[in-house]
Amino acid sequence: MTQFMLSVHHTPGSEPYASEEEMQAAFAAVAAFNQQLADDGRLVFVGALHSEADIVTAKGVDEPPVREGAQLGGFWVVEVDGRAGARKLAEQASAACRQPIEVREFES
């Protein structure tokens, strides 16, 4: 089994959902997707991230967060047989959260 990260990115300043109802429906669908992953033994870890971030350099200097382009909003770490399986799960994740999903394999 290989581990993959399925990630959701959001553009700062834009709302990913058109309404509160759409957002709540997506949250419920994601919860059901998460449960199915857990029940299938494929879920390693799932997490959602706050939009605020700190940037720290090797010199210990905090810099303002970089806000150009999409930012990581949440992710799943899953175990599957290969990339095709990860892509299939990403399609299901995208349908649940109604956002595009990036698929990346962990280096071994």
Rank of each mutant, 00 (worst) to 15 (best):
V8N: 05
H9L: 11
H10Y: 14
T11C: 11
P12S: 08
G13K: 00
S14K: 10
S14F: 08
P16E: 13
P16Y: 08
Y17I: 08
E21K: 06
M23Q: 15
A25K: 03
A26W: 01
F27A: 06
A31T: 12
A31E: 12
Q36H: 03
L37K: 00
L37V: 03
D39N: 09
D39Q: 12
G41Q: 06
G41F: 07
R42K: 14
V44H: 00
F45E: 13
G47Q: 03
A48D: 12
A48G: 14
H50L: 12
H50S: 14
H50R: 11
S51T: 14
E52Y: 08
E52F: 08
A53Y: 08
A53Q: 14
V56A: 08
T57Q: 13
P65L: 10
A70R: 15
L72W: 07
L72A: 13
W76A: 03
V77H: 06
V77G: 07
V77P: 05
V77D: 04
V78A: 07
E79G: 08
V80R: 02
G82C: 10
R83A: 10
G85E: 11
A86W: 02
A86L: 04
A86F: 02
R87Y: 08
R87A: 11
K88Y: 13
L89E: 07
Q92I: 00
Q92D: 10
A95R: 13
R98G: 06
Q99T: 04
I101K: 00
E102H: 06
F106R: 04
E107S: 11
S108F: 13
